[in-house]
Amino acid sequence: MLKDVTIGQYFPGNTIIHRLDPRTKLILVIVYIAALFTAREWLSYGLMLAVTCAIVAVSRISPRTLTRGMKPLVFIICFTGVLNLFYTTGGTTLLDWWIFHVTTDGVKRAVMMVVRILMLISGTFLLTYTTSPMALTDGLEMLLNPLKKIRVPIHEMSMMMSMALRFIPTLIEETDKIMSAQRARGADFETGRLMERAKALLPLLVPLFVSAFRRADELAVAMESRCYHGGEGRTRMKQLRMARRDYLALFSGAALLAVVIVMNVYGL
């Protein structure tokens, strides 16, 4: 149950995708999304699909893992598809019955929208599946570094983010443990009406909050006793360094975006 959540999970590996610098991957995801929204016709969509499949293959993330992560989003995807199917006008009419009008343009839009969302999700999932949370926040901090000039507390924000990410698995584990302990005392989390169920959560939430505050306190003491005093002059154990493969990857990303833009101009 709780342990099956795969959104945002990291699957360690040693493929070229895993080894890319997190900054490169973050930029590439932005470029990828931009290209995805520029693509308008079958040919450019096909190109994007091929690129996506190639990246999935190289990263050795099993397609099953990818589709399992998408499960919670099935509703939104279907909803978008259906909406586009019925509310697009233009092209020849295929079906005209009661309030339903399906046109060739509608079918095309629906298919494209669904494919676009699927690729969007795959791209962002690939980022979190192949990059450890720590690397991701480090990369983000360095990318946003210029904002420090206008006094945006980038370091503090990324520190908070990495701590939050760090404690998600811990809290999930803790929730699991407390739930089991209260179940062993006969607590029932699954049945009953809404009010009963809300009340049944009390034996779970109280210990969870107590331990979260205790942990926060302990973490603060541990950080202070190791002389943490903000990002000023702090050095890193893992220095991020751009390698040749990063420049190569960035160049390929730029090339992909350029090709898709050209295709868009020529209506392909």
């Binding site: 443990k177 407390i178 089991s180 302990a181 209260q182 179940r183 062993a184 005392r185 006969g186 029932d188 009390l202 034996p203 109280v206 210990p207 107590v210 331990s211």
Partner: peptide, 19 residues
């Protein structure tokens, strides 16, 4: 569900389940 009352389980560090 009934077995939970027949077989009582005290978890490790059970003090964290007090609420």
């Amino acid at each position: 569900r009934d077995v939970r009352f027949k077989v009582g389980l005290v978890f490790q560090y059970p003090e964290y389940q007090l609420f």
